[in-house]
Simulated scan of single mutants.
Amino acid sequence: MQSDLFDVTLRASTHDLGGFKVHRTLPAKERMMVGPFLFFDQMGPARLGAGDGIDVRPHPHINLATVTYLFDGAIGHRDSLGTAQRIEPGAVNLMTAGHGIVHSERSPGDERAHGPVLSGIQTWLALPDAQEEIDPAFEHVPAPALPMIEAGGATARVIMGELWGARAPTTTYAGTIYADVRLAPGAVVPIDAAADERALYLVEGEAVLEGVPLQPLTLYVLKPGVAATLRSEGGGRAMLCGGDAFATPRHVWWNFVSSRRDRIEEAKRAWRAGEFARVPGDAQEWIPIPAVPKTVSYP
């Protein structure tokens, strides 16, 4: 049955960042991308001690868009465009790197005071070849602006693209589907075959796709053209992602993504040389380029 449904199933690799864990399923040796998605991290769930917090120091990106979506907690985002934006559960932060952007992510002060919680999904999306070097941009879409739709005992928030006839206002650069699907006990919902590439990720609870129980910390990449039914007897929560297949492969090294390896080498040189813009209000520290990055492509 699994061979009829899935191209590949990707188990997460887990990274302990000190106080909380990140579980990464993309990129992987078996599969680099699902539609435009080339990075898929589940953050937490975690609770830090009072006075502690998440401090991701300023770091650069090129030729991609980052999408941050929280289930619990809050993150303060700052970037080199001058953006200062708090994100909370149900909203989406879309940061388009284009030819280059620098940002930081930190726990807000009010969260630190009582011990922050953090749970969510962070993804990277490749930009189409002709748009890799566009101007950087930032977009925050609050939770009430994202469509909430119901079908078959499930309630889905459409984060990007279109699902079951409802479209999110979030900017997309390629055909994209991204949704947070909450399954009530007894839910039965369709996973249609409209997108070139699709994947499901079980966040919590339980769910079964065409008789195959979905396991946590696993990204299930569906075969193209296969329609399926997602069921949950006890209730659960799953993320659906995917979209247009990319004809041109992407190279990934650390925080840099591009269709051209030489562009990544240029970004490395520019970050070492201090040529990227600084983050207003958070310019005193930064993350140096690592000798061995945790995020790499697998050509």
Rank of each mutant, 00 (worst) to 15 (best):
M1A: 15
S3K: 12
F6W: 03
V8Y: 06
F20C: 12
H23S: 14
T25Y: 03
F39Q: 10
D41A: 09
D41Q: 03
Q42V: 02
I54P: 01
P60Q: 13
H61G: 07
I62Y: 02
A65D: 04
V67A: 13
V67M: 15
D72K: 14
I75H: 02
S80L: 03
L81P: 03
I87E: 03
G90D: 04
A97Q: 10
A97L: 11
I101S: 10
V102Q: 04
H103T: 06
E105A: 05
S107R: 03
G115F: 03
P116Q: 03
V117E: 09
V117N: 00
G120N: 10
T123Q: 09
L127D: 10
P128S: 02
D129F: 08
D129S: 13
A130C: 05
Q131S: 15
E133A: 13
P136G: 14
A143M: 10
P144Y: 09
P144C: 01
P144W: 08
P147F: 07
P147G: 06
M148T: 14
A151Y: 06
T155L: 06
T155M: 07
A156T: 11
A156K: 01
M160L: 13
G161I: 01
G161A: 06
E162F: 07
W164E: 09
G165H: 12
A166R: 14
P169T: 15
A174Y: 06
G175M: 07
Y178P: 05
A184T: 07
G186S: 10
I191H: 00
D192P: 12
A199G: 15
V203N: 05
E204D: 14
V208R: 05
E210F: 05
V212D: 02
L214H: 11
L222W: 04
A227V: 00
R231G: 08
R231W: 01
R231P: 04
S232H: 06
L240V: 13
G242T: 11
A245R: 15
F246T: 04
W253R: 09
F256Y: 11
R261M: 05
D262H: 11
R263F: 00
E265L: 05
A270N: 15
F276L: 12
A277D: 12
G281V: 12
E285W: 05
P290Q: 07
P293Y: 07
T295S: 12
S297T: 14
